[in-house]
Design a protein around this nucleic acid. Structure first.
Lengths: 136, 136
DNA sequence: GTAGATGCAAAGTATTTGCGACAAG
DNA sequence: CTTGTCGCAAATACTTTGCATCTAC
């Protein structure tokens, strides 16, 4: 039973204001990886008085609380997505900007092995694939 | 017989000004991954009149010419390194900021396989490992 | 000689912050 | 009630750009 973003806020002791609820809802429902501007646009439709500063403050807060993940893909602004238990990496279509999420256990294992080889414990990683659709 | 950065400029038809020669030299000799500020500092010691704008223009030009690689590691400014034939990825020490370069052919192959699985041709990728040194 | 490069300062982006008003717990 | 949040606008950090001058080829 996975928690909603609002539930995670309560668990982590993050105060739930109206603005944060709006952002929580948008990110919960998002099927994509919106950037701050897009998030601000969507939030403004619900609460036209919300400030972009609040959006920035909230995504940062949520990121630090482990609720959202921030991605700085090449050639675009910072994008956010809800942080779910099962980790995944991203394949980015450089023509369309479409983002495909994938998981590859073998790559994960090899990454640990590489870190190990150099005497490191792997704390985090970033794997992004950039590609173009093959003609079918 | 690998070319120097200056030679690459000539090959690629990039005009060699004094400022560009300075930046080429610094990057050729760099054992690290300097950011623009650091590059500007090192360049200023050779030519105190060089402008930061020129440094920005030059790294961008070199990047587009395939002479330098730009890296946006998490939590730090854009860093540059000379682009060498043999590709490598990076392992970043999150305590010290030290950067270790590594190559893992198996991971490379698996990346291609993943892209392929989703119907993509892999054009580029980014793999960064973030770790802490193990106690020995 | 001429197209392109430089230095400077001003303008852009993306993001953060100080502050008085306001709201959640 | 009191601590923390919000909206606003100003500030910051990094990067780009317009323009007059200068330089590599």
């Amino acid at each position: 039973m996975s928690q909603t973003i609002e539930q995670k806020c309560i668990t982590k002791g993050v105060k739930l204001t109206d603005q944060r609820k709006i952002i929580a809802k948008i990110m919960s429902e998002a099927q994509d990886h919106p950037d701050v501007d897009e998030l601000y646009n969507r939030a403004s439709k619900i609460d036209p008085k919300i400030s972009i500063a609040t959006v920035y403050r909230t995504v940062k807060l949520f990121e630090e609380a482990g609720i959202l993940a921030k991605h700085d893909f090449k050639g675009s602004k910072a994008r956010y997505e809800e942080l779910i238990e099962d980790h995944h990496d991203h394949l980015i279509d450089i023509k369309t900007g479409e983002i495909i999420e994938f998981v590859d256990e073998d790559i994960e294992k090899l990454q640990k092995k590489v870190a190990d080889k150099y005497g490191y414990n792997l704390v985090d990683h970033r794997l992004e694939l950039y590609g173009v659709k093959k003609k079918s």
